[in-house]
Design a protein around this nucleic acid. Sequence first.
DNA 1: CGTATTTGACCCGCGC
DNA 2: GCGCGGGTCAAATACG
Length: 264
Amino acid sequence: MELLGLNYNSEFTEAFNNPPATPNCSSSVSSASSDALNDDEPPPPPPQQQQQQHSPTKQLKGIKKRKEKEKEKKARFAFMTKSEVDHLEDGYRWRKYGQKAVKNSPFPRSYYRCTSAACNVKKRVERSFADPTVVVTTYEGQHTHPSPILSRSALAVAIPPPSFIPGAGGECVGGVVAMPWLKPSNNDAHDGNTVPAMSHQYFQNSTYITAQNVAANYNRNNHIGAANAAGILQEKRFCNPNSSFLVDHGLLQDVVPPHMLKQE
DNA sequence: CGTATTTGACCCGCGC
DNA sequence: GCGCGGGTCAAATACG
């Protein structure tokens, strides 16, 4: 994981320091993400080809090695499982209905719907394979029910973030910050006169929540891209919740997977 | 065997 | 009109 993160970060930083000629360079992105996935594993040849070329013992060894590699990879990305990630992030249960690679983003994007039938809230989550503490979440809609997992005091974690992150170019829209699962923000009036559903822009424990209905983009003139370029996500990133943080804010530690706890 | 996840097809809006 | 990118769906696959 550490090696992956280092590789990924250096590559990403370099990409920002030496931007390609074209602003939209999907090839560099795809290579970055595929590198993150396959950096320690050359693509195995098709099984049929392997059968023709290798002796049975070699073939068996190859299969065994590949299975081990797959097992390793699975363990490494175990944090991606739905329940763990979702409990940690906002206390709601979500059903995943899709995932995609995103242009200009080194992160894969996953799509979720709230499992509560009457609640039509959706969210999409972009999480770095290389560094699972870097998360971009975008909510659409407001929950019609409280979190089934977190206590009220835990929900009160809605700490107003700094409205401006030096060097990142990021600021909260309207200076209003609301946890979307707490209550609608002041900008969510939907009366046709105010800006609808904005103001969820902040960094919190490396989680970046975008304004609703706004896609994150990673160009350097954008919040996240600039933050990456400035190294903020790498250096100033909080580690994910440590135990004292959880205790202080009444979070239930047993819903947080151990590998997401802060490690020094 | 039921559920969760992956994956490619399909759709749609938008810009050229 | 066409291509592209993002969102959704559902079949295939993985998994316990």
